[in-house]
Nucleic acid binder design. Structure first.
Length: 324
DNA sequence: TTCCGACAGTGGGGTCGCAAT
DNA sequence: ATTGCGACCCCACTATCGGAA
C-alpha cells in the first residue's frame, strides 16, 4: 500500500507554432479552457489537487467514479472543463463551481453543469514514477491505464501536423493547441520550452476614456487604461481596462498624451461599475489604440487584454466592437 | 560575449467568503 | 445589509539577473 508522492504540474510556455521543419518533433493536443488538476487515484478513491496545491476534490463529485476506471494507483494530469450551451469549453460556466464549498450547491451545479476531466498525462503508476518516460511512452501508458467513462476522457494527440491541429482548434472554438516535444520528460513545477501553448489571439481597436494610477513601480503614473468601443448606435460603451503590454517608455508617453485630455466626467455612455470608476481619471475619448485579447466576457469586457500600441491612423468615431 | 530561464512585480476578468463598516 | 478585501481560479507582460551556451 504505497503512498503517492506529491507532484507539481508542469506548465507550458506561450509561443508560436513550431516551424514546419521541426513539426514532426512535437505531439499536438487541443488546449482546453478550464482548471488544471492533478488526479491522485489510490485505494479506490480520487483526490483532485489544484495548481496551487489545494485539495478541490469535493467541488467535483461527478468525477469520483474515475477511481474505478483506473487500474491500480496512479497520478493523472488534466484539465477540468465545463462545456457551454454551444458545445465548447466555457470558463464562465466553470467559475461558479471553482470556489464553491456548499455541498448542496455543488450537487445542484453537478446536475445542471457537469464537468468533464480531460486527462492528458500520467505521472505515476503503481509504485513507480513515470515522469522520466518520454511523452509518447507516457501517453501509451495513459491509454493502458484508463478505461472510458461518461465524465472523463483521454483526448488524442497528433504526432506532427501542427498546422492542421491549430486550424482544427479554431474551428472547434478552442483556445489553441499545446505542442509537446515527443521525447521530453515531465518536468514537475517547471514552465518548460518542451511544452509550447499556441493560442488564437484576437485584436480590437479601443478608445481610451480614462486611466487609473498604478502602484509600486508605477505609483507616480498610469496603472491601467479604461477602454471603450462604440455600439451600433454610436455610443461609447465601457469595455474594461488594460494594464499590461506597455513598456515604461510607452506608459510615460501615454501619460503625456492623456494629461491635456483630462475631463471631469466619464465619457462612457453606460455606467462604469463603481469598483472600476474608483480613482479613475477621465479623459476625452479621442485616443485610439489596439489590444490583443482572448475573448469577450458575458459582461462585454475584454478577457486577458494586453496593449499593443496607439493607432493614430484611426478615428475614435470609427472604433466599433468587432465580431469574435 | 550573448542568450535563455526563472523570478519578481505590475496589471486584467471573474467568484466566493468573511471582516469591517 | 452593504461594502471592501483577500484568496483563489484563469491570465499577459516587462524588467532583471545569474548561469548556460
Amino acid at each position: 500500500m504505497g503512498h503517492l508522492p506529491p507532484y507539481a504540474p508542469m506548465t507550458a510556455r506561450l509561443g508560436p507554432l513550431p516551424p514546419r521543419s521541426r513539426d514532426e518533433l512535437y505531439g499536438y493536443e487541443m488546449k482546453w479552457d478550464g482548471v488544471r488538476a492533478l488526479g491522485y487515484v489510490e485505494g479506490g478513491r480520487l483526490r483532485l489537487v489544484s495548481r496551487n496545491g489545494l485539495d478541490v476534490t469535493v467541488a467535483y463529485p461527478e468525477l469520483g467514479p474515475l477511481a474505478d476506471a483506473v487500474a491500480g494507483a496512479a497520478v493523472l494530469d488534466g484539465e477540468i472543463v465545463a462545456f457551454g450551451p454551444r458545445g465548447h469549453p466555457s470558463f464562465a460556466a466553470l467559475q461558479p463551481r471553482m470556489h464553491q464549498r456548499d455541498p448542496a450547491k455543488i450537487r445542484m451545479l453537478a446536475r445542471t453543469t457537469p464537468v468533464t476531466y480531460l486527462i492528458f498525462d500520467i505521472l505515476h503508476r503503481g509504485d513507480a514514477t513515470a515522469i522520466r518516460l518520454p511523452y509518447v511512452e507516457r501517453r501509451d501508458l495513459l491509454d493502458r491505464t484508463i478505461s472510458a467513462g461518461e465524465r472523463w476522457d483521454v483526448p488524442p494527440y497528433s504526432p506532427g501536423g501542427g498546422a492542421a491541429a491549430f486550424r482544427t482548434s479554431h474551428e472547434l472554438r478552442l483556445e489553441g493547441v499545446v505542442a509537446k516535444r515527443l521525447t521530453s520528460a515531465y518536468q514537475p513545477g517547471r514552465r518548460s520550452g518542451d511544452w509550447v501553448k499556441v493560442k488564437h489571439f484576437r485584436t480590437q481597436e479601443v478608445v481610451v476614456g480614462g486611466w487609473k494610477p498604478g502602484e509600486g513601480r508605477r505609483a507616480r503614473g498610469i496603472g491601467s487604461l479604461l477602454l471603450g468601443v462604440r455600439d451600433p448606435a454610436g455610443r461609447l460603451v465601457y469595455a474594461g481596462h488594460v494594464g499590461t503590454g506597455f513598456t515604461e517608455a510607452a506608459l510615460a508617453d501615454l501619460g503625456a498624451r492623456l494629461a491635456p485630455l483630462a475631463r471631469a466626467t466619464s465619457p462612457f455612455a453606460d455606467e462604469v461599475p463603481r469598483e472600476h470608476a474608483r480613482h479613475a481619471h477621465w479623459t476625452e475619448p479621442v485616443l485610439v489604440g489596439e489590444v490583443r485579447y482572448a475573448e469577450w466576457t458575458g459582461d462585454g469586457r475584454l478577457r486577458h487584454p494586453s496593449w499593443r500600441g496607439l493607432r493614430p491612423d484611426r478615428r475614435a468615431e470609427d472604433v466599433v466592437r468587432e465580431p469574435g
